[in-house]
């Protein structure tokens, strides 16, 4: 039953994603594209967090996706929808390698290792200008860039697909494995799952999805440079969104993405007459958000509806 309802919602969302951009003001349509990229990285980050893997390297996946799409498009003129495929494969491969190499690392150590690899990727992008264009960046071949409406529909569909993936993941038998991974890997083995292989699988999936976000951005801005493609800000928003929305939930990253992007956009539009005020307000809201609602917007909503706090709202690692 639930699965059927899930399918209906997914199909409905896809239809909305395809139709709505035709009727929206262009700025809002652009905003939805940005939102989709944020949902992609946020959901992908949340997938890894679900398995107890804290990533500080999502800008690495993002940059990898953006660069592979842009360079392939320029070299072979492959259209934007096709460029997703190699980028995702590369992201998945990179994620798998990362998980394999860092096999013994946990928690914060894993996090720092991911941060280190993404910084190293940025340095490579800067230092191999013959391939990447170096610090001057690269333009995506302009003649084959999709128009705005296609762009928005396409990225919304990808966002829906991503949320659907995490939804089905949370309905599958893997959810127990995921939750168990957060606590102890030996418990996972009892569920008949090989933890090492599972780690690699989750990281690869997460990497593939995050590099999709990079691909969208490359086509959306039409220009990328190492500073923006491997910006640590990406990693940070990838974790702020699920945290703000609600960690370890399906809807958390979506709600969080909408909330923080809306916040940043509103502060940008209304406080843009003086440098720094927008980001300051954004920072303040973040601080108060964490202090006042530690389990995110979703947790806040659930607590309002049910007096008993559900499992999803209280992360297993809380001591």
């Amino acid at each position: 039953m639930i699965a059927v309802r899930g399918w209906i919602i997914i199909l409905g969302s896809l239809v909305v994603a395809l139709v709505a951009p035709h009727f929206l003001p262009p700025g809002f349509s652009d905003w939805l594209t940005r939102l989709s990229t944020l949902i992609l990285v946020a959901a992908s980050w949340n997938m890894m967090a679900n398995a107890g893997l804290i990533s500080l390297g999502h800008s690495g996946f993002w940059g990898l996706g953006a660069y592979s799409a842009a360079l392939l498009a320029n070299a072979f003129h492959i259209p934007f929808w096709l460029s997703i495929v190699p980028a995702m494969l590369l992201g998945a491969f990179f994620g798998a390698c990362l998980a394999y190499i860092t096999g013994r690392l946990r928690g914060l150590f894993f996090a720092i290792a991911t941060l280190a690899t993404s910084e190293a990727l940025r340095v490579v992008a800067l230092m191999v200008p013959k391939l990447t264009g170096g610090a001057e960046g690269v333009f995506v071949f302009d003649q084959i860039r999709p128009d705005r409406i296609t762009m928005t529909s396409f990225s919304l569909c990808l966002a829906v697909a991503t949320v659907a993936t995490s939804y089905f993941l949370s309905r599958s038998r893997y959810q127990y494995a995921l939750r168990a991974m957060r606590d102890s890997e030996s418990a996972v083995q009892m569920l008949g799952v090989n933890p090492a292989r599972f780690r690699i699988g989750v990281t690869a999936l997460s990497g593939a999805i995050a590099s999709c976000a990079g691909v969208i951005t490359a086509w959306f801005t039409g220009y990328i440079d190492p500073g923006s493609a491997f910006d640590l800000k990406i990693t940070i928003s990838a974790q702020i969104a699920p945290l703000f929305g609600g960690l370890y939930t399906v809807t958390g990253p979506v709600v969080g993405s909408i909330a923080i992007l809306a916040l940043s956009e509103l502060t940008r539009l209304y406080f843009n007459y003086s440098g720094g005020v927008g980001l300051l307000v954004y920072g303040c809201i973040l601080v108060f958000g964490v202090l006042m609602m530690p389990s995110g917007l979703v947790g806040l909503w659930k607590r309002r509806r049910k007096p008993v706090v559900t499992d999803a709202a209280v992360p297993a690692r809380a001591k």
Binding site: T221, S228, R268, G278
Partner: peptide
Amino acid sequence: FRDTQSDPQV
């Protein structure tokens, strides 16, 4: 005036 926040997407 529109703040680009030094971010290409914005």
